[in-house]
Amino acid sequence: MKRIPGSFSLLGGVIGAVLILLWVGADGYKQTLVTTTATYALIALGMYVPYLMAGSLSMAYGAYAGIGGYAVGLISSKSGLPLVVAWIVGPIVAAAVAVLLGLATRRLSGFFLAAVTLLFGMAFTAWLVDAEGISGGSAGLGSLRKLNLFGWQPDHYDVVVGSTVVVCVIAFLLDRLRMSPWGVIVRTMRDAPRAVEAAGVRVPVMNLVSLAVGAAIAAVGGGLFTYSAGSVTPDTFTLNLVFLAIFMPLIGGSATPWGAVLGAVIAVELTLNFPAVETSGTLILALGVLVILLVAPQGVIGYASRLTKLVGGRRG
């Protein structure tokens, strides 16, 4: 038994993050790629809880990330509060919205849930465009204040490093959460909800809690992206992004939250940093997802861990 559960994966994640940061260096474009990857990863990590643990696919994550983003924009432009408050308010509001939407859709599952949550995401975008007084309309909110953490003002590179740290910490905590009693209950809800109910946990309520946790994580990602990009508009968090976030854990491997992170790295690399196939990176990704679904449902990490088990088993 390992002494600290999840530390092995964390080590892998940290090594990966350090390698990425070394590769990035002072290159501004690559730095943007890293913050984008971190955002994608956080949205995928948020979805991980309800989608891969509890087995219900909500597609309103563009809205939750948007709430996190607009929290940063609004706190910056309409209040005198320290900017860091946005990362507390945003996730809480996103969690509350997720609970309300979850209550409205509590009887839905599968395709019905996906359709309604997609519509909600579209309606949220439409509302952002309409509500000019609050959201700044289609121009969005820009010219943000700088973060100030107890006198320390992080520069752009600090933000890049900080975002990878946040991703690693959240993936590590989620990995542990997955193994914990809470994770066992939520993962059992996916295949055997009746057993969970019969054991004394109200399944619909637990579902809402898992949705809230997921939305809060996605909102952290949305805030991060908005801060590093310097502005947020209704089109910042698109439906495309939500689709990509569904596929990321499949690419990386759905057995652990780190799979979602790895998937995010691959997705950003393919869609944004693959000059040879500039316009078709997303197409390659989409086709790749189909192939993975059909021939390799465990994703990259699933195969890697099977391989290590095989090697370790021979040695032992």
């Binding site: 696919l57 599968g110 395709f111 996906a114 689709f243 569904i246 596929f247 499949l250 078709s280 997303t282 197409l283 990704l285 989409a286 086709l287 997802v289 189909l290 679904l293």
Partner: peptide, 13 residues
């Protein structure tokens, strides 16, 4: 559901 989402996305791309 995930498979059909992937199909949708792939055809779109």
């Amino acid at each position: 559901l995930v498979a059909v989402a992937a199909v949708l996305f792939a055809i779109q791309q």
